[in-house]
């Protein structure tokens, strides 16, 4: 098993390139999910404000 990670001495290079790809490709969807949450909160807040404004007018 350690032979597999050693990769004939090139392990550090191979695994760091895999890790760089993995980190970026996990970070991107994570940020997208976070963004979705904040956008949805923003939309809900706007609707609440809009409702309050129309109620005050009436």
């Amino acid at each position: 098993m350690s032979e597999f990670f050693y990769m004939g001495g090139y392990g550090a290079y191979i695994w760091s390139s895999m890790a760089a790809a993995a980190i970026l490709m996990l970070l991107e969807p994570a940020l997208l999910m976070l963004k979705r949450r904040t956008v949805l909160q923003e939309v809900k807040r706007n609707i609440r404000l809009e409702k309050r404004r129309t109620r005050n007018k009436g």
Binding site: P29, L32, K35, V39, E42, V43
Partner: peptide, 20 residues
């Protein structure tokens, strides 16, 4: 992966731009 993330981002952009 690109399809998935692009569609996720497009949905976020739609929500932002069409929120009214």
């Amino acid at each position: 992966y690109s399809f998935a993330t692009i569609l996720m981002r497009t949905r976020n952009i739609i929500l932002e731009r069409e929120r009214k």
